[in-house]
Design a protein around this nucleic acid. Structure first.
Lengths: 221, 221
DNA sequence: CCTACCGATCGGTAGG
DNA sequence: CCTACCGATCGGTAGG
């Protein structure tokens, strides 16, 4: 993807005073870009801002990324890959005989974590800055989004068929995801409800059947 | 607000070849700005783009507005004023003995119209570009938003108390409004569901009691 | 990854 | 509201 930076050293780099792992600097750029893109938006963030936040000079980001748009794309792509991994992990960790309501609860909970938890800049940047991507980039991201939403489609359609969710199934999915995605606009960490409480309230709002189960199913040994 | 343009002619302006109603030009600028801010975002839209879309030269918008931020503020403020008016009008048009579910339905329906109907750029610009406002501007808008959301607060709390809405009442309000506001991201006019169908589906998703009433309560005379 | 730099664009203004 | 213009900033590059 663009100018490759795959000259990453194999072992531990020699600790010369300025020895710097190139992969680390690239990742630092991504984190800085993600934070600034989320705070100010893509167009309002200069590559100089990003360079300074990563402790570099104005021209240096272009050693790691072809241009500003490539930086945005890398943030978004990495965000979606991480989100897909976390989603898959959470679904796999469910007990084999978990019902649909439990699956939906897991999806909602991990989604709040992806949007609002620690290191959660990348997916909000995707949600709110995707229009700054060009068409090929959008298409690449759309594939990852489809995979992410497929899990939701399955769970919501099953629950909808069982009468646990009202309205049109497709519109219900769009509106439920919208309700969660909008939390980026108003949720402030450490103020008000916890992510667990958010998850509970969301499910009580959207799901009719009393899907509550006291606590987690993983009881102490 | 800013350089006043209140030399508006009283009657019909003499139709000289270039006779131009100043209020019209200002309004044309606002419409062009609203459309472009919605499409591309505030930071990615140049004042030259706006001027060109309104048929002006690069410097002319600054005859009507002090600076670019004042243009954004005017768009957002006008959007909120119009939204408040439409909301009030719809609530007043309800039959006196309309129940809470009918009030919520009216709020949802007019909200979709404000977000997705004809001439619906201004409120989406507020929702997605408010962070480009400075602090005093944000405070001014926050007052209008509070008024707009008060109607929702009343309706949702009443319905929540009656068991028609699940979860925490405040979080339910935030999530319901979020679900609707997010529709700006995916809804395309003329494709898929109509705004009436969106409204139906939203209420069936969020409200437990069978608040359906066949059609409108305003029967033919 | 830094130094030094460039061309383009942008918000905004003077003066009419 | 146009003409003509300015200073600042921005994305990006050459060369090391």
């Amino acid at each position: 993807m663009g100018a490759a930076g795959d000259a990453r050293p194999r072992g531990r780099p020699k600790k010369a005073p300025d020895a710097i792992d190139e992969g680390n600097r690239r990742q630092e750029l991504l984190r800085a870009a993600g934070r600034l893109f989320r705070q100010q938006g893509f167009a309002a963030t200069s590559t100089r801002d990003i360079a300074a936040a990563a402790g570099m000079r104005a021209g240096s980001p272009f050693y790691h990324f072809e241009n500003k748009a490539a930086l945005l794309f890398a943030v978004v792509e990495q965000g979606m890959h991480a989100a897909l991994e976390r989603q898959a992990q959470v679904l796999c960790a469910l007990p084999a005989r978990a019902d649909t309501a439990a699956r939906l609860r897991a999806l909602v909970r991990v989604h709040f974590d992806i949007l609002l938890g620690p290191d959660s800049d990348f997916v909000p940047v995707m949600l709110y800055e995707w229009r700054s991507l060009d068409l090929p980039q959008r298409r690449a991201i759309a594939g990852l989004q489809r995979a992410y939403e497929d899990a939701w489609k399955t769970a919501i359609e099953a629950l909808h068929a069982a009468g646990g969710i009202g309205g049109d199934a497709r519109l219900a999915r769009l509106m439920i995801l919208g309700a969660l995605n909008w939390s980026v606009q108003w949720y402030r960490v450490g103020q008000g409800a916890s992510l667990d409480e958010l998850c509970d309230s969301a499910l009580q709002l959207f799901v009719r059947a009393p899907a509550r189960r006291g606590g987690r199913q993983s009881a102490p040994p």
